[in-house]
Nucleic acid binder design. Structure first.
Lengths: 210, 210
DNA sequence: GTCTATAGGAAGATAGAC
DNA sequence: GTCTATCTTCCTATAGAC
């Protein structure tokens, strides 16, 4: 019964390994320069197995974009929920900075994550179907962060100089651009996270009404 | 004498047309997916002419990156110089917003410009030589904008809540991310420029001490 | 300087064995 | 389900004519 209902466990595992390998290769050399064969080698399969699981390289890419988007949205939502549950929102203006940088430690903090994120972004700039998916996840993350900002503001003595949504947008933007420049400068992972966190903190602090 | 000194006028013109066509094609489909043949067709030449002017597609891309970077830096520097010469810096807090959005109308405001800029960016993320060039132009533009912010502050009753360089960085970052989302949403050129300008204005306003 | 012709290779995708 | 073998297409780069 469990066999007729859906794809077998083995098949799922193969798909997963192929997607994982593809994420690496796409990040490293880009979707267009990535050959199906290299992806298969990395995953420990041959092209036959690949085409038994995906109709084309494009289909694999689309599937991967969906997964990455879902994962990012979930990751941020989880952090926000955790902060809210912790009661960490009883804060002073001083540790807003800390909270902010903690939430925005979104998925791609490592070099490959930043690369994959940007690879997806440029393909979304060119393909309308991808653009829709990209903007959707972007909005979902924005919503999460904006809600957190909203919660921070509500009933506290902290006020921002922009509406919550604009604050959230700015933080996301700073996170993204700082991490890109960090990767480009060749910062090691620890430095990358620290530097991005500091930048976020400075901007958040400047936006707090005092 | 004019012939022995350097490349002929005709040759320069061919190079220029090839570079121009390449900029379009790279923006549209990306450097890896762009074939030399399509670039040549677009420029009105054949591959023979191409390889007489460039050793490889990579060399063409590097040359193009250099040109684009140079052009961007010059464009921003010119605008800043023009504003300083105009005495447009005698301003009140109210029109800082206007000035800011005027300066940051940097080159790529159209769809293709944004695409090309992002294409260059992701290649710079992967190739250290390109990364150095990218960071260099980024810093040069940052310097220009920071100087402008500095001039605005000096001797006026306007003060920002961040140091000039941080303000400049934030404005560049907002410009970049807003234009990307605008292109992705399919905004027509006029809307794209207007929307980006408004966003920049809002952020600038929030950073002015009052 | 630019063209045509072509060598040489790489990669996407399919068919059929196991 | 996965593998090997193969078809086919496309592309980079070169050589030599004009």
């Amino acid at each position: 019964m469990s066999d007729t209902a859906g794809p077998s466990r083995r098949r799922e595992e193969t798909r997963r390994r192929l997607l994982e390998a593809a994420a690496e290769v796409f990040a490293e050399v880009g979707m267009d320069a990535a050959s199906v064969e290299v992806i298969c080698d990395r995953a420990g399969f041959t092209r036959g197995a690949f085409y038994s699981n995906f109709a084309s390289k494009d289909e694999l890419f689309f599937a991967l974009v969906g997964l990455v988007a879902q994962e990012r949205v979930r990751s941020v939502a989880d952090r926000v929920a955790a902060l809210e549950a912790d009661g960490a929102l009883d804060m002073t203006a001083d540790n807003v900075v800390e909270v902010v940088s903690r939430v925005l430690e979104i998925g791609p903090e490592d070099r490959l994550g930043v690369l994959l994120f940007n690879e997806i972004r440029i393909h979304a700039l060119r393909a309308p179907e991808l653009a829709a998916a990209y903007l959707e996840q972007d909005t979902a993350i924005l919503d999460s962060v904006a809600r957190l900002v909203d919660d921070i503001v509500a009933g506290k003595d902290i006020r921002f100089r922009l509406e919550p949504r604009a604050v959230a947008r700015l933080l996301m933007t700073v996170w993204e651009s700082t991490s890109v420049r960090g990767v480009m400068a060749g910062l090691p992972p620890a430095e990358l996270a620290r530097h991005t966190g500091e930048e976020l903190g400075r901007v958040a602090a400047a936006l707090i009404e005092r």
